[in-house]
Structure formats: C-alpha cells, structure tokens
Design a protein around this nucleic acid. Structure first.
Lengths: 350, 350
DNA sequence: CTGAAAGCGCTAACAA
DNA sequence: TTGTTAGCGCTTTCAG
C-alpha cells in the first residue's frame, strides 16, 4: 500500500482512472463523474477544467465499470449466418450507421448456418453482455428455446430477414411471398413452363414464403407443380453445384430457375456452362441477390434485390426505440420493406 | 433495504447474480466463483451441484464485472474501411473463426474510409474496451497519432492488409509489390503497351507497393511510364465511374487496366460497355479481387486473389499470441501471405 | 455547486 | 476444500 502512490505516478498515462484524475484536479470523484455524465449541477468552469485535464492525461472512462453500475452496456449484438454475402454485409452497414450515430458498439457473431453455434452464442447473451440483439436465424433453426430464453431475460431482440415464426418479437422483413410470386410470374411470362425453385432451407420462413409465392404463380399460369423442381440446397458449395447440375442434366430439366439466395448464382452459371446450356435460351435464371456485379455477369442477371441497407437500418432503429421507451412493445413491430425485380438478360425471351 | 429480499425473489430469474446463487446453494460467493473459473480447489461434487443449480436458475456470470476485476475483456476490435467488400468480409470470417475458438468476442467498426471516423473509433479504445485491435487503415490515413496513442496505452494491435508504415507493430499483408509486378507483366505479355493503374489512395502502402511493382514491370518491358495512366480513385461510385470513362474516352486510351481494388470492377465493365469497347480486344482488365463471381462475368475476370480468410486468421492468431505471452514482440511479426494470379478471359490475347 | 460513501457483480488474497 | 473480505472503476443518492 505504501508504494501504491509511486506506482500510480509511474503508470499514470497507462492506467488512469477517475480517482487519479480527481486527485490531480483537487476535486471529488463524484464531481468528475458528473462532468462526464453531462450533469447540469456542475459549473461551466469546473466542467471545462475537468475535460481539459482529462484530455491532457489521456483519460477515458472505463465503459465496463459504468455499465456495471448503470446496467447498460451500450453494446448490441448482431447474429447472422454469414458475412460474406452481400445481403448481410449491406445490412451490417445499415446497422453500424445507426449504432455509430447512437454511440453504441456492435458485436458480431457468425453462426455459419449452424444451429448449435447459434445456441452457444445466444446462451452467452444471458450474461448481460449486450443491451439488445439483432438476429437472422440459421437455416437449421427449428427449435426456438434458446431464443425464448434470451427474451425471457428481457433482452430486446429484433429479427431481420430471417425470422423465427414462433417467437413473438419485432420483425423486419421484405415481401418474400410477393417476390416469389413476381419472380415466377416473370419467368412464366417469358415462356417458362417448367420452373425450378432452389430453396435454402425447408424450415426457414423466408424460403418457404418465397416458395408459396412461387406456387401461387404456378397455379395462376396453370403450370403443374412438380416435386423434382424443388431443390433443397445446403451449406456446401460443391454439394450445391452437384445438385444443380443434376437438376439440369436430365430430360425433364427446367427451363427456368429461381434461386432463393445469392450464393446459388455462381454454381448455376457454371453448371450451365459445363452442360453447354445457354442462359437464357435453354434456361432462364433469376436470383434473390444484392450482388453489385449482377449487371456485368454473362449474361447479366435478373434479380430480386432486397433493400438490405434499409433493413439493417430499420432493425437497428426499432431496437434503439425499445431502449428509449421501456413501454415499447417490440412484438407489435412488423415492418415489411419491399424488394425490387430488376430484369436483365438472364431472363430474356429468345 | 427491508424489501430488497422480496424484490430479489420476484425477479430472480431475471437478475441472478453470484451472491443469489451462492445463497441458494448455501455456499460462499468465492466458492461459486471458483467453480466458474475452473479452479482445482473445488470438489467434483460441489462443482457439479453449482453448475446444475446455475443451469436451473439460468445464471451466467456477468462478463463486465469479471473484466473489471480481472482487467481482461475477452473482446477484440476489428477496424476496417468497409464490410461490403469480399476481401474484408472473408477476412472477418477468418478473424471470427479464431475468436470464437478462443472464446473471444468481436466488436466491429467501419471507418467508411474516413480518417475522422477512424480517429473517433480509436479514441474510444483508450477506455479499455478491448484487449486488442485488428486494423486496416482508411484510405485517408496519413497521420498516425491516433494509432500511436492506442499503442502507447499498451493495447496490442495488428495491422492486416492496409498497414500504417510509421507505426511499429505486427503486420499481416500480402505480396503487394510482386503482385503489381505480376499483373503488369501479364498484361505486357498479352500485348498491352499502354497500361493504366487505378489506385485507391496515394497514401496507402498497399496501393503504392502495387504501383511500384507496376512501374518495375513497365521498365522491364520498356514501356514508358505516363502520368495520365495513374488514376487516383476516390470513395464515390459515380466519381470513379466518370474517372474511368474519362480515361477510356480518349485517343490515348489504355489497352490494359489494373484495378487496385475490387470495387472498380463494375465501373470498368460498364464504362467499356457504354463506350462500346470490347474486353479483352480493346482493353484488357485485371483486378485485385476476391469476388466469387469473377469467373461468371462477361467476360470472366482475370484477378489477383488475396488469401483473405487466411490473412484474417493470421492476424487474429498473432494478436492472441501476444495475449498469451506478455513478452511477445508484436513489432517483430511481419507475415506476408502470397496472392494468386488467376488468368481468365478479360486478359485473353486476341 | 461539490463531496462522502455505498454498492454494481465479480475475483483473488488470505484465513480457516 | 471452503469462506471472508477488500477492492476493480464507476455512478448515484444524500448531505453539505
């Protein structure tokens, strides 16, 4: 205890804390604290003096110490299946824009479409690490106990894009059903009569809603629904490539393909190339995608493009609203931002 | 104080803490704490009992309280210019893989290429929010005081891809000089004699090193260096498009283009289309890029592809090593992971 | 307007 | 093997 003072001097630039700063200023700890919390009970003069000295001594309040007392971490979590996907990376942009503006910090967690990882990640949130959660569930997520447990702890949560249907909380999505319908209708109008749908998961609402729209359009155009035309893809690039090649290397092969997510685009194009099938002459292709280079593909790709950035922003905005008003009812928030059909050459009528 | 007990019972499932759990178990807090810290001085039986009750009562230790005592946050920061770029999103994958494995949490910060934002973000790290930092500097970063301040506080930092030359700390990069050389040589061998280089910043080592390689190859092939062939792009899509169009809409127009980063690809292709220039006949194109669909572009794109995932992994690995060994000398780490030239149709000799 | 002191949830000496 | 206790750095009544 005797040489504590010396030690503090030696490392003062490194381990400054509020007590040291207060001592330096000849003020009490609470006065200094109030300055940093913008309290109105401190004189302008003192405020200025404190801030200047803090700057000089390179002092920044320890956020974890304040969160311990104040019970708010100023941190949110974003849980997504994948980051190397333009939908999710654009959504992160939107989230980060809002978070930075509000002075919040963003923890990122990737499930890689694994339910088990998702569980482990959510489990940790029980600890009070974050004030809220933005989440897009994995393709494997069927049970929701891990999500409900987090909500039971009253940690606000907002789903974006991929929701979990049996959890009642805010949902920011796009008009999946309608887009599935529009995509299919578009292909039908271009002359397709044998349309395949590449699903990312049979349990994901996003994928199923798009498929329901697909079925509705089939009905409308009196195109019979065929089981062989629904391909449940998985999470491995090579498996998907093979499944697609299989679908196309067949005398019943489709004359139109709808890809439910962007990552199927490359394997579709490559499979067509390898099988000597021409897009759009032999097969027309449309993909849900936010890929910027869609327009310079060979041929350019018709897409259903989601407002990814806006979805991220909306999700974050709703979450922050729930922080501001304790009475805010997250489960009543259900925002649907429409996607856009961008017609390009991959669905050209030939 | 009188009704505190009652209150605790009511919300016990929500605000469990170690004290409550200890009371429930008839044990002391320290015993419980030791169980969670895998101390060997606790009997198997007690351990089991504690863990089971914790599970039942939904207790998870508050990480910020432990970090306050233990002075480690189990959190790292990743500071990057942009996430909607396949190099950075793949690097994040690599970082996250290591972090998840080590039980660390990843805070993400985007500078959007703004020096000012970068400063503000780093300033916050003075607070002890993170145990370490992985960083790729913005295109605007010339001064490094904000970075040095963080290092002065002894917060370990590792640069990946975009380093800051006057800061001595670990660097994980790719062989930029060599790749600039290889790209240029490749174009020259395909017959180009008027090669443009699209730079992302005149102050970034990454961009300058690639350019130095470019110059070396020019010299080797006796191609005169022309100022008009260096285009300093900026951060706005439309500006870049215009600059590229300008470069090409000119009787001195280049017969080869090297794009220093992936995001120039789309504007190059579109400018060529708009000017009725054929790739590769009129202009050959090569881009530093990790874009998966490079292979299905029209024409397919020749790329210098960086080991993005491995760079992320290596950066995180080095950072964690410095956590484990206090004596670890970060400034001696200088890992160079080589990129690959992938020849495709955009540089075909015609 | 400023200060004293209790305590946020946890860990780590040190005692028992 | 388990328990007591003093903080980690900060905020927040409450008193002055």
């Amino acid at each position: 205890m005797r040489n504590r003072f010396r030690k503090n001097i030696i490392v003062e630039m490194k381990n400054m804390n509020i007590r040291q700063l207060a001592k330096e200023l000849g003020l009490s700890v609470s006065t200094v604290s109030k300055v940093f919390n913008k309290s109105h009970e401190i004189s302008e003069e003192t405020k200025k003096r404190v801030l200047e000295t803090a700057e000089k001594m390179n002092y920044t309040p320890n956020p974890y110490a304040s969160s311990l007392r104040g019970r708010k971490t100023k941190t949110i979590a974003v849980v997504i299946p994948e980051v190397a996907d333009s939908f999710f990376s654009l959504a992160i942009n939107g989230i980060e824009a809002i978070a930075q503006d509000k002075g919040y910090h963003v923890l990122i967690y990737l499930t890689h479409e694994s339910f088990q990882k998702e569980q482990a990640i959510l489990k940790d949130f029980q600890s009070g690490r974050v004030d809220g959660i933005l989440m897009s569930v994995s393709r494997e997520t069927i049970y929701s106990d891990h999500i409900k447990a987090v909500i039971a702890k009253e940690i606000p949560m907002v789903f974006f894009d991929r929701i979990c249907e049996d959890v009642q909380t805010a949902r920011i999505t796009t008009n999946d059903f309608e887009c599935g319908y529009l995509a299919t209708k578009h292909l039908a109008e271009k002359g397709c009569r044998n349309i395949a749908y590449l699903s990312i998961s049979s349990s994901l609402a996003i994928s199923n809603n798009r498929m329901k729209g697909y079925k509705k359009a089939l009905l409308e155009f009196k195109i019979p629904f065929e089981d062989r035309n629904i391909v449940d893809c998985d999470n491995d690039y090579n498996d998907n490539y093979k499944a697609i090649k299989n679908l196309l290397n067949n005398n019943m092969r489709p004359d139109g393909i709808i890809a439910c997510v962007e990552k199927f685009t490359t394997p579709i194009y490559l499979a067509c190339r390898d099988l000597n099938l021409s897009i759009p002459r032999d097969v027309k292709v449309i993909s849900f995608s936010n890929l910027e280079p869609a327009t310079i593909l060979n041929p350019s790709l018709t897409t259903i493009t989601q407002p990814a950035f806006e979805i991220g922003k909306a999700a974050a905005t709703v979450l922050f609203k729930s922080f501001e008003k304790k009475s805010f009812r997250l489960e009543l928030e259900n925002i649907v931002l429409p996607s856009t059909l961008l017609v390009r050459d991959s669905t050209l009528k030939v």
